[in-house]
Amino acid sequence: MYITDHPILGAEENTEMVNITVDGVPLRVRKGSMIAAALLANGIKVNRYTLKHHEPRGVFCGIGQCTDCVMIVNGQPNVRTCITPVEENMVIMTQNKD
């Protein structure tokens, strides 16, 4: 689900897509969207699992404060996906999945 029409910003004109992989699965997502938003649009709600109890976590604050949505992006862990835009060929992994 993307917002395609907005009362203030108007209609979305950007239809460019980029290719990313999430846990090895290829996805085409809207260029410029945040990783977490692109994943939500594809039904992916779990970004990481907690260290102590291995519980799933997803977007909580959505503004880069809480670090609940961190994932491994291009090999770097702890990337806040709600404030990091997708880029072509980005490799994204669920953090602490196993």
């Binding site: 102590k52 109890h53 519980e55 976590r57 909580f60 809480c66 670090t67 609940d68």
Partner: peptide, 9 residues
């Protein structure tokens, strides 16, 4: 059992 600190559980 309500979580307060989400990072450290």
């Amino acid at each position: 059992d309500l979580i307060v600190c989400r990072c450290e559980e």
